[in-house]
Amino acid sequence: MIKVHLWSGLRRLAGGAEAVTVQAATVGQMFDAMIAAHPGLEPVIKAGVSVVIDGEVTAGGRNLAVKPENEIYLIQRVKGG
């Protein structure tokens, strides 16, 4: 199981929990499992979020591996100049 931390706005869409726990080996599976458990998350995840794995902002490619020991945060998609 992996634990995904949510920002406050997402928590409201996921039953209020600070984090959700899902069964997943990749970012894609993680998103799918989160949406299955909390359908309200779908539009936000589809619109694009940044996945921070062990402190590193990734582009959230669906194939990226996630493991139970990773620290995983979703944050609002960030853009650069």
Binding site: H5, W7, V52, D54, G55, E56, E71, Y73, I75
Partner: peptide, 9 residues
């Protein structure tokens, strides 16, 4: 723990 959540490397 950064202000936006994740832990800094």
């Amino acid at each position: 723990k950064s202000s936006y959540g994740p832990t800094y490397n």
